[in-house]
Design a protein around this nucleic acid. Structure first.
Lengths: 110, 110
DNA sequence: ATAATATTCAACCATATGGTTGAATATTAT
DNA sequence: ATAATATTCAACCATATGGTTGAATATTAT
């Protein structure tokens, strides 16, 4: 019954698990955009983009600066770092695996 | 209507967006486990663990080796690498941000 | 004041998710 | 042959997701 998804990584990974939202992150890496600007280039409704933005905002991947009636969206790096850190823990593991694989390949070449 | 979630990263990030599944990945980083072994230590049913395993397997994060009636699960590194790579694209962006922040802090210290 | 613009809200829909329990299937042990 | 063990399957449930459309709200321009 996850009404309140506890761990921040739940929200971050969930937010990244959608192509449209990854595209939004990608766009915001270069520039700030308003809602209307952002939604142009997606073939879904503005309301749908608005929902995606809310998901990203809730995951703290982006933030919103409101000036009058327009909302300016920008990327926030911290949570991406946390996601990267989580995955990185397993780098050691898979590096070991890769080394083994390389070894096998090299032995095969002899 | 995502019956077929196209991009592999959709599945990978979705798979990682759940604490139980991240725990499974964590456990499998050390060791191979069977279903029964894995499910001990989680307070959900074996069937539920089985479903989580299927999600991870479908995302190609783990693989299953069947010997007789027991299934041995193990971690597969490649997709984790892909996820890491995707996030890493934005490292440059946030590093720039971090540098700016550091600058501000240093100026403040003067 | 009125109109246009930017955005959210609400209601709705179809499908997915994460859990349960009990039955089914396959393999192994006695 | 029978029983035990390992795992999946099926049906079910409550809630979440990702989309829609039309109305509402707030701000800005005329």
């Amino acid at each position: 019954m996850p009404l309140a998804k506890q761990h921040p990584l739940d929200k971050v990974f969930m937010a990244l698990a959608d192509q449209t939202r990854r595209d939004i992150v990608h766009r915001l890496a270069d520039n700030e955009y308003t809602m209307t600007e952002l939604s142009s280039g997606f073939d879904i409704s503005l309301a749908a983009v608005s929902k995606h933005v809310k998901v990203l905002e809730n995951a703290k991947l982006i933030k919103r600066r409101i000036t009058g009636r327009t909302h300016h969206l920008s990327l926030v790096p911290e949570q991406l770092t946390d996601a990267l850190d989580w995955i990185s823990i397993y780098r050691h593991f898979w590096q070991k695996r890769m080394d083994k694989l390389t070894e096998v390949v090299e032995n095969h070449e002899d």
